[in-house]
């Protein structure tokens, strides 16, 4: 059994992502956040479990569904919300939006929405860092669809060849937009076995069990830092809301509503809350206080974003080049 401090930290981390994203979903219809948002509600355990095993100086790369990864790695909440609002105080000066979060201080080197595109970049960042004699580890988060991209295979091949200190984290949420895994990949093959076929050590676990996630991540980080090379981790999980946007989209009929309801019963946050209460680590009141603290933090971030200035017109042509 992990100690109470870690369990509480994991719980707070997941809760924070959930509350932040639920508030984004509530505010989104006001049409002030004028960029696509891909919410990770339901998938929080992967982000939090993996990032909890990392040091602040370790690198994380992500994809279009990056809010959870960014926050779990320690990305600044106010800069993230301001970025989604397109403001000058955003983490990318409003030039990136929700799909291009970045926080160098937190080691969150960047998220981009082209499927699979940050996988080799994460490998390169880890390898480049190692070439410079640093002991950094890099994690790349991607979805099940990324395994269908050639660059995934190219990256695993090279990472193993050079024993790069990188961890490939696949959040298998069973859908690429509206296309289920069954129409995209042969059913008799598990995703983590593909990585295994490349010779990369690979594991699979329940992505809604934050302790299982953390435990696999911890081992992979230790191995990478010790020069043991890459690991591939597949975590099965489920996106509750629509692919892009604030709503539920089970009315579209691309996935059975019963499937969603089953996964909802396996909410990673509710599951851990139960454990915390049962073990007497937290009280209802303590959890309530945690919730209110995150809610006020989020309200302050929204206020900050709303009050922040728009980017100056001169920024339009700025930072295309170094000078």
């Amino acid at each position: 059994m992990m100690d109470a401090e870690i369990l509480t930290r994991l719980y707070r981390g997941m809760l924070r992502i959930r509350i932040v994203e639920e508030r984004i979903a509530e505010l989104y219809p006001q049409q002030e956040m004028r960029c696509p948002v891909h919410l990770c509600i339901g998938q929080e355990a992967v982000a939090v479990g993996v990032c909890d095993a990392l040091d602040r100086g370790d690198y994380v790369f992500s994809n279009h569904r990056s809010h959870g990864h960014y926050l779990a790695k320690g990305g600044d909440l106010r800069s993230m919300i301001a970025e989604i609002y397109g403001k000058a105080t955003g983490c990318a000066q409003g030039k990136g939006g929700s799909m291009h979060l970045v926080d160098l201080d937190a080691g969150f080197l960047g998220a981009t929405p082209i499927v699979g595109s940050t996988i080799p970049i994460g490998v390169g960042a880890a390898w480049g860092s190692a070439l410079k004699g640093e002991s950094r580890v890099a994690v790349v988060f991607f979805g099940d669809g990324a395994l269908e991209e050639g660059v995934f295979h190219e990256s695993l091949n090279f990472a193993l060849l050079k024993k790069v200190p990188v961890i490939f984290v696949c959040e298998n949420n069973l859908y690429s937009v509206y296309s289920p895994l069954a129409v995209r990949q042969p059913g008799e093959r598990e995703l983590f076995c593909i990585a295994g076929g490349h010779g990369v050590e690979s594991h699979q676990a329940d992505g809604n069990d934050v302790l299982a996630v953390r435990s696999l991540a911890e081992r992979a980080v230790e191995k990478a830092r010790g020069g043991g090379g890459p690991t591939f981790l597949e975590f099965k999980t489920y996106r509750w809301r629509e692919h892009c946007g604030p709503n539920y989209d089970d009315d579209l009929g691309y996935r059975p509503e019963t499937e969603f309801l089953e996964w909802k019963k396996r909410c990673p946050i509710a599951a851990l809350r139960e454990r915390l209460l049962e073990a007497g680590i937290c009280s209802d009141r303590g959890i309530g206080e945690m919730e209110s603290a995150v809610k006020s933090e989020m309200e302050a971030a929204v206020e900050f974003a709303r009050r922040s200035p728009w980017p100056a017109d001169t920024l339009l042509m700025g930072d295309v080049y170094a000078s």
Partner: peptide
Amino acid sequence: DMPTSENGMTGVAVGTALAGC
């Protein structure tokens, strides 16, 4: 030398550039 992976290896190069190479 490098694997015959033009896209992947360009990504790796981009990553190393981000890391200071």
